[in-house]
Design a protein around this nucleic acid. Structure first.
Lengths: 143, 143
DNA sequence: TTCTTGTGTTCAAGCGCTTGAGGTGTGTGA
DNA sequence: TCACACACCTCAAGCGCTTGAACACAAGAA
């Protein structure tokens, strides 16, 4: 059970150091042990929870839901199905988000084509590009 | 040139009403005209800018960059190439983000499988699922 | 005519961090 | 041994919204 600094944990879990301190402040993780000079000492057991929370966070899960997830860890047996569903729900959320991201890429590229046409002072290309922007915008739900 | 309420604009551009007010407060859009009772009246000319900003925002573009984009609209000819590049850069950002999202989905599903195995008290399945979680975590950069 | 419903308004506070200022303790090089 | 870098600390303020409270106005029902 080796000891990790806040920097190590930040790198390995994809959270910033301030975020790790913040999560500890609000009781989402920890309390984390300290060495003689007050520096945090994470152990590998902390990594698993922090990694899971980091991933939940990256998918837009609220602090409240993360608390639920953490609280459920205490009584595994009863809440296993709930945990599974929470995770699957968020996986679906991300899938929806990916679809939206594709639509955004389409819009950005279409709009970039308009500016490219303008850069080359090509009125015909610009008109075509505008058409593509309109379609992309509809895909996004704009109008 | 028909007139739109804040609600119409919010729906058509995918921004919330408070966000639209906020963007006006900080000078990112507008100023927007008002009717006799102080309600905002957007016109269709506003929609194009707001739609573009909304999409930039959705891709994580900072308010500062949005200001640049808007400022560049004033002198189109000189900045056309810059506008195009700004948009393309952000399209690439989203592509990278999508890759990350796929990795997150993998992690969430793997973790869900662990809880599912626990729910069914299936030790063998749980051990296998853990293996998948480890792989998914590596994909995410979690050591 | 009053009363409710709906849509808007402003202003203040909260959220989930991020950034910055200012300080502490440890380790290495001169 | 002293200087300096460096990794960490706390605390406060800022960011980009969101939420909520309290109020204004217009239209239709009782």
């Amino acid at each position: 059970m080796d000891v990790l600094t806040i920097r190590d944990v930040a790198r390995r879990c994809g959270l910033s150091e301030p975020t790790l301190r913040y999560y500890e402040d609000i009781g989402l993780i920890g309390p984390i042990g300290r060495d003689a000079s007050g520096h945090r000492q994470y152990d590998t057991a902390d990594l698993d929870l922090i990694g899971a929370l980091s991933c939940l966070r990256a998918t837009g899960v609220s602090i409240g839901d993360m608390r639920t997830y953490k609280a459920n860890l205490a009584n595994r047996e009863e809440t296993a199905a709930e945990q599974r569903d929470l995770l699957l729900r968020h996986a679906e959320r991300i899938e929806a988000e990916i679809v939206a991201q594709h639509a955004r890429i389409g819009y950005l590229r279409a709009k970039a084509a308009v500016w490219d046409a303008r850069d080359h002072a090509d009125g015909v290309a610009e008109a075509e590009a505008w058409q593509a922007v309109k379609e992309a915008a509809q895909h996004l739900g704009f109008h």
